[in-house]
Simulated assay, not measured.
Amino acid sequence: MMPRLGNPLVYDLLVVADLLSDQRGRRNLQRAATRRAVSSAYYAVFHGVCFICTRALGLWRRDAALTEPIYRLLDQAQIRKRLSGREAAEISAAVAEIGINFAELQALRHLADYSPPSLDISREEARSTVARARKTISDLESLDDDQCRRLAVLLITKARLV
């Protein structure tokens, strides 16, 4: 059965994050693995959002020539900003929750990817992050077609100055 989000990368990144969060061995290897688990969990959500936007616009295909421009158009900082705003909450409570989780996952990814080597992310913290990403993907899957279209328009259109 194909998941509701038709981009298998979303689910594969969650599997990778699970595997990395369970890494055993040398302490430094575990540190690197838990950091990458956090990053992979975030990117699963990012690719989920990208999929929602390309599908809502009728552009989702396995042909990268059609999907890549949308993926490149979606700036991660702008996604966080837009999903944290009033317009996201007006779409639905689920979109507002997606926005909260996206911002938190992005902040955790920044810590994991850009902090000095001494940053220690525990296995439990990594697993919690993966669980949060999985919940956010589930929330994305629950959006109806109208909510997906409204979300895509919110994330793709230029912000208006009021």
Rank of each mutant, 00 (worst) to 15 (best):
A88T: 01
T54I: 14
D113C: 04
Y42L: 03
E124S: 12
I98A: 11
D113G: 03
S118Q: 11
L74E: 04
E97S: 14
L29V: 13
A65E: 13
R132Q: 13
P116F: 07
P116N: 10
S39V: 12
A94K: 15
A107I: 02
Q76L: 08
A112W: 00
R109H: 11
L66H: 13
L57R: 13
L111F: 11
L111A: 09
A94I: 00
Y42P: 04
L83T: 07
G58C: 06
R24K: 14
F102T: 00
A112S: 14
V130K: 10
R61M: 10
R31Y: 09
G85T: 01
A89K: 12
S128L: 10
L111T: 06
D63N: 15
T67H: 06
V38L: 07
S128A: 15
Q106Y: 13
L119C: 05
Y71W: 13
E125T: 11
V95F: 01
S92R: 10
E87N: 08
G48I: 02
S40V: 00
A33R: 10
R27H: 08
R109N: 01
C53T: 10
Y71D: 12
Q30R: 15
S40T: 00
A77W: 05
G85Q: 09
Q78I: 06
I79T: 03
E97R: 15
Q106C: 03
R36A: 15
A65Q: 05
V130R: 15
R36I: 05
L111W: 04
I91P: 07
A112K: 08
L119A: 09
R127K: 15
S118A: 14
A112N: 05
R86L: 11
C53I: 02
E68W: 07
R82C: 01
R24T: 15
R26G: 13
H110N: 14
P116A: 15
E125W: 03
S115V: 07
Q106S: 09
R86N: 05
I98Y: 06
S115K: 11
D75G: 07
L83F: 06
I100V: 13
L57K: 13
E87F: 10
V49S: 02
L73E: 10
E87Q: 12
D120F: 12
R80V: 06
R72N: 13
I79M: 11
R80D: 09
S92F: 01
I91F: 02
S39L: 09
A41I: 04
V38P: 03
L59V: 09
A88S: 09
A88Q: 03
R123E: 15
R123H: 03
C50D: 09
S84D: 03
R123L: 13
A77V: 04
L29W: 04
F102I: 02
R72Q: 13
A96T: 02
V95G: 01
R61V: 08
I98M: 07
Q76W: 03
V49R: 01
I91N: 09
I52H: 02
L108C: 02
K81C: 00
T67G: 10
D63H: 05
E124T: 14
R35N: 04
S84M: 05
I121T: 08
A89Y: 05
S115A: 15
L66R: 14
A88C: 02
R35K: 14
F102H: 09
A107V: 04
A37W: 02
A94H: 05
A65R: 14
R55T: 10
A56R: 06
P116V: 10
I98R: 05
N28D: 14
K81D: 12
I52V: 15
D113R: 03
P69S: 14
